[in-house]
Simulated scan of single mutants.
Amino acid sequence: MTNPTKATRTDLRVAIAGLGPIGTKVAQALDRGIDGLVLAAVSAQNPEKHRSWLGDLATAPAVLGIEKLADVADIVIECAPAKLIRSIVAPFVGSGKTAVVLSAGALLENEDLIELAKQSGGQIVVPTGALIGLDAVTAAAVGKIHSVRMVTRKPVQGLAGAPYIVENNIDIERITEPLRIFEGTAREAAKGFPANLNVAVALSLAGIGPDRTRLEIWADPTVTRNIHRVEVESDAARFSMSIENIPSENPKTGRITALSVIAYLRKLHAPLRVGT
């Protein structure tokens, strides 16, 4: 009797757009090995800056312009400046492929990408990133959520250069004690702090939307971590959650964000998946 042969599976090809702290860590994890995936290509604003460590990978990926990534990959990890989201995401979801988006705030100004994905059979994935509890919020949203409120405290340098800071002439260098610098909706925060508050937009998309999700932002010289506290009232549960993220090499981004993307990629072919 002949033993049945194990079905073969073609590895999914992954592209990474942007090689900052997040993209670099995800590329290295893929090179070390994630079941069913292969790092096919990367794109960066300054490719020469990354030639050395890319050359040290076990299998060096192709280095391409973002407009060519969809030709060689099935999934793209968007780790780039928010202004590039359309040029990165549209070719993938328009071809029925998957785009993992970290610049979640930019989705609010490019909502037609979601419709494009729907029409083409593609998918936009917003990973948990630097927040916790999105599974609980998603579950509560199946019922009725009454309110979602988030309070973020960041080291002063983590907010430097944000459009809201510049437009309102806030001299954050002179802040010597915790100062609330913003209160409003997640949509407003996404515009004013595009590199800082993608977590708030992810929270809003999981729950009651960017116009009903309320947010406070504090510039706090007494903290060294990005701190987020979320409170949710719903007909299924009342819950709160808090996380303190250690900043990466980029003070605007927590180290756990890259780990969240890696965890998502590992789930794609995992024999056991935990979480919604």
Rank of each mutant, 00 (worst) to 15 (best):
R9D: 06
P81G: 07
T98S: 00
A236D: 10
I246Q: 06
L179N: 00
I22W: 01
P178I: 01
G94A: 10
V261H: 01
G33E: 03
G158L: 04
I22T: 14
A106T: 09
H50P: 07
V137E: 01
I145S: 15
D11I: 01
S95D: 12
R9L: 14
K6Y: 15
L116I: 11
E244P: 00
T24F: 13
I16F: 01
G36S: 05
I175A: 09
L57F: 04
R86F: 03
V76D: 14
L57A: 06
A202Q: 03
H269L: 13
E177P: 02
T10R: 15
G36L: 05
A62P: 08
L265W: 11
R255L: 15
T176C: 01
E115I: 06
T2C: 02
V126Q: 08
E249G: 15
G33N: 03
I227Q: 14
V125G: 08
G23K: 09
L116A: 12
S52Y: 07
E244Q: 13
L215Y: 01
V76A: 10
V261Q: 11
G105H: 05
I75K: 15
D56T: 06
V76M: 03
T224H: 06
P4V: 02
L113W: 08
V148G: 12
A29E: 12
M1T: 00
L131W: 00
V261G: 01
E48Y: 00
A236R: 13
A270N: 09
R225E: 13
P91W: 00
V125P: 14
M1S: 14
T138W: 07
R214V: 02
S103F: 00
L215M: 04
I77R: 05
A258H: 08
L107P: 11
A200E: 01
V274K: 05
G161T: 03
G122M: 10
K144C: 15
T98V: 14
P251T: 08
P21H: 14
L134I: 11
L84I: 02
V232T: 00
